[in-house]
Simulated assay, not measured.
Amino acid sequence: MTGNIDSVAKEIAADFAVLQRDIAHLTESLRKFLDHRAQTAGAQVSDAAEGVKEKIAEAAGDARKGAESAGEEIAASIGRNPLTAILIALGLGLFVGLISRSRG
């Protein structure tokens, strides 16, 4: 009977050793999987950030071109109608002066 208990104990110990190895392999596989997923997610975030950066640069370039075009149009308008430009500037100056005057 003691031999039977010893053999069962040895089988249980062997099963636990196999189970321990399986858990170690599973843990390592899970670590590798999570590392891979983290790298993939990092690459996706990096790609998305690069895309946003390119779109912002493109939008800034478009805005700069629009501002330059508007400035050129204003300069041309002033060149065509200098008296009107002077009267508009005078009116705006008076308006801003009246608004900013203290109410004392």
Results as ranks from 00 to 15, higher is better:
I88E: 15
G3V: 06
A14I: 05
L87R: 13
D35S: 09
V8I: 10
E54A: 11
A24R: 09
L19P: 00
S69H: 12
G97H: 05
D62M: 15
R101M: 15
I88N: 14
A63G: 00
G66T: 00
K55C: 14
A14T: 07
G97E: 03
E58G: 02
K53V: 14
F95S: 02
I78E: 07
N81A: 12
R31T: 05
A43N: 06
L94T: 01
T84K: 12
R37H: 06
K65Y: 10
A60I: 14
A17E: 13
E58L: 10
I23K: 14
G71V: 06
G66V: 05
F16R: 13
K65L: 04
V52C: 04
K55T: 15
T27K: 10
L90T: 03
I78H: 00
S102H: 05
R103T: 06
A63W: 11
E28D: 02
V52R: 02
S7W: 09
A38T: 08
I56S: 02
K32T: 05
V96E: 02
A38M: 03
M1S: 15
L94G: 06
I74T: 02
I78N: 02
L30A: 02
Q20F: 15
S46Q: 10
L83F: 10
V45Q: 01
K32W: 11
A57Q: 06
G93F: 15
D6S: 11
S7A: 05
S102Q: 12
D6A: 14
A49D: 13
A57E: 15
A89L: 11
A75I: 15
T84F: 11
N4M: 08
